[in-house]
Design a protein around this nucleic acid. Structure first.
Length: 565
RNA sequence: CGGGGCGUAGCGCAGUCCGGUUAGCGCGCUUGACUGGGGGUCAAGAGGUCGGAGGUUCGAAUCCUCUCGCCCCGACCA
């Protein structure tokens, strides 16, 4: 007999601590007046739970994640990660442990992107984790950008100190920094690898970890150490390098939309948001469900800045020595944070099928040993039929969950992990030759003829993928506004509730006079930044001249304003 | 680095103000039974040098000093 939703909710957390919460409101003195306070407390806290229909919170719909997005968005985000068992904080400050479900997502991101990089002519290589301090110093702006957040290695061994504790010993002649990014160390190699125009373009990528000593960290979004890829390329001229910059930006945008189902705006950064040392920084910006922007990938045209500082020169066809033009571009495990905040709901993660560690989970249901054998055999053959099919160019990933858990608990664990399709298979389904299918993104459930399901499973997964993207696009549209008055702008970015779940308008498409002073004012007064200047043809692009929303001065087009992660 | 909060069992907490039996509770975990189509029931168990180091005391989770770590809020960032 299935339990009713409200009934189930009553036995769960909002209500289970109800009596205790109220016990706190007893005057403290009362508990200890007779010296047996403990017994008092015990008596209070052993009050039986109120019956479900009396539970004061039973009106709330049941959610697997608490708090909900509306109640406390940042905490919801952390709880989703925990409930899906994706990652956890480590004993090392600011660093995370990525658990198998989270790492599987990263592996899928890696595999797909790596294929796209190869398709565009790039090859992988690996450069050192440690960078001599003097290298960072070669590019002045680069130093300014990263010096404040570098981990520095100063010693090469440990010795037992006077109190028996290990102390660093044997100082290095030149300290090493742990790479926050690799332009300088890669530049050193490139300077030797590039001699002639015939060596160009040089198209290299590396998958690596980097360290940026951040003050405040959040799982996946900003950690002291994170995983990423960084592409580094060298070109003979500006046009070629700029084309590369844009090509990789397109790769990122395609990947974000097609695989992460995360709509992004391709745009150019303003001077104040530019990568330290770059001539131009381009980015993809996405809107999260709290309406804040997440920079999800960047691609930089570095001009000849790093070529000069690293001495990357080549002899051109005329025999002249020239500085090369370089680019760099990267995406990181932050994409996983973006995926969570784009799709997850109050029941946990929702994984876009193209990236799902498991596409389909089959939950066998049986009572006794005889049933078990039948049901498992049915499940195995179903798994085989499903596994033979392909979504994109990958075989369906299907798992049978035969763990010895109660049905409900097992089901919920997969809901929280965000597996696109769940299938219940019990004796009744076998008798009817059907399967019972539940769809994670919409919550729809139906009994479907088995062969029909096998025949439509790819279409079903694709429908989920499409729905997630469409839903996210609709959300972005709903929370984006073209704004031309300063009052309206301030109203748009003023939280509607002063409390924790900050709800403000979202994105604003506004005219801007191009001055850093206006940017500084926006940041100071509204905590809003110019996320990007949309590229021609992009969503949000508008290059009809107008007047700056702040100053009324002339503007050549609209920019995207938002609060950002 | 400034302001605020918190470290007690795997997780969440009570106990700290006002020092005094063997430090409790919920969830989870283990074992068994009944169960099993959205978080089930019952029974029996295991699990803690109370973040760390000093100090006060006959006696410290509780008081004092120092220290480490975490969370939230502000300035930087993929």
């Amino acid at each position: 007999m299935p339990r009713s939703k409200t009934c189930a909710a009553a036995s769960r957390s909002p209500c289970s601590d109800w009596p205790r919460r109220h016990a706190r409101h007893y005057p403290k003195g009362a508990a200890t007046r007779d010296g047996s306070g403990r017994r008092h407390r015990r008596a209070i806290s052993s009050v039986p739970f109120l019956p479900p229909n009396r539970c004061p919170m039973s009106q709330q719909p049941k959610t697997a994640i608490q708090p909900t997005r509306a109640q406390d968005y940042p905490e919801w985000y952390l709880q989703v990660i925990k409930a899906a068992d994706m990652a956890e904080n480590s004993p090392v400050r600011g660093c995370m442990v990525i658990k198998p479900w989270g790492y599987a997502l990263w592996e899928n991101i890696q595999r797909t992107l790596d294929g796209m990089f190869k398709e565009t002519g790039h090859v992988n290589a690996y450069f050192p984790l440690f960078i001599p301090l003097s290298y960072l110093q070669k590019e002045a702006q680069h130093v300014d950008g990263f010096a404040k957040e570098c981990a520095v290695v100063t010693h090469s061994r440990l010795e037992a100190g006077p109190d028996g504790k290990l102390v660093p010993a044997s100082p290095l002649e030149e300290p090493l920094i742990v790479r926050p990014t690799s332009e300088t160390i890669i530049g050193e190699s490139f300077a030797r690898w590039v001699q002639s125009y015939r060596d160009l373009p040089l198209l290299i990528n590396q998958w690596a970890n980097v360290v940026r000593w951040e003050m405040r960290t959040r799982l996946f979004l900003r950690t002291a150490e994170f995983l990423w890829q960084e592409g580094h390329t060298v070109h003979a001229d500006e046009a070629d390098a700029r084309a590369e910059t844009m090509r990789m930006l397109d790769v990122y945008a395609d990947f974000a939309e097609q695989h992460l189902a995360m709509p992004v705006i391709k745009g150019r950064k303003t001077d104040s948001e530019r990568f330290p040392g770059a001539v131009d920084t381009y980015c993809i910006e996405a809107m999260m469900q709290d309406r804040k922007a997440l920079q999800s990938g960047t691609s930089h045209y570095l001009g000849q800045n790093f070529a000069r500082s690293s001495n990357i020169r080549f002899q051109d066809e005329a025999g002249q020595m020239q500085f090369a033009h370089t680019t760099s571009w990267g995406v990181s495990t932050r994409l996983i944070g973006g995926m969570i905040m784009t799709h997850a709901d109050d029941d946990g993660l929702i994984v876009p099928p193209r990236l799902a560690p498991q596409h389909v989970v089959i939950l066998p249901i049986y009572r006794d040993a005889a049933d078990r054998a039948n049901v498992l055999a049915y499940c195995e053959s179903l798994k085989t039929e499903l596994h033979a099919q392909r979504l994109g160019d990958e075989r369906l990933r299907v798992t049978i969950d035969d763990r010895d858990l109660r049905g409900g608990e097992k089901t919920w664990s997969w809901v929280k992990k965000g597996v696109p399709l769940r299938i219940d298979v019990g004796p009744r389904d076998i008798a009817a030759g059907s399967v019972f299918v539940a769809r994670r993104d919409t919550g729809e459930k139906e009994s479907v003829d088995r062969s029909e399901f096998v025949g439509t499973v790819i279409a079903r997964l694709q429908a989920i993928q499409d729905n997630l993207l469409a839903r996210a696009k609709a959300f972005r549209t709903e929370h984006t506004r073209v704004i031309d008055s300063k009052d309206e702008l301030y109203a748009w970015f003023t939280p509607q509730s002063g409390d924790k779940p900050e709800i403000h308008g979202g994105f604003a498409l506004c005219h801007w006079n191009g001055s850093a002073a206006v940017e500084a004012q926006l940041k100071e007064e509204l905590k809003v930044t110019i996320r990007c200047i949309p590229l021609e043809g992009e969503w949000g692009y508008d290059a009809t001249p107008g007047q700056c929303v702040m100053t009324g001065e002339p503007s050549v087009g609209r920019v995207v304003l938002a609060k950002a992660y």
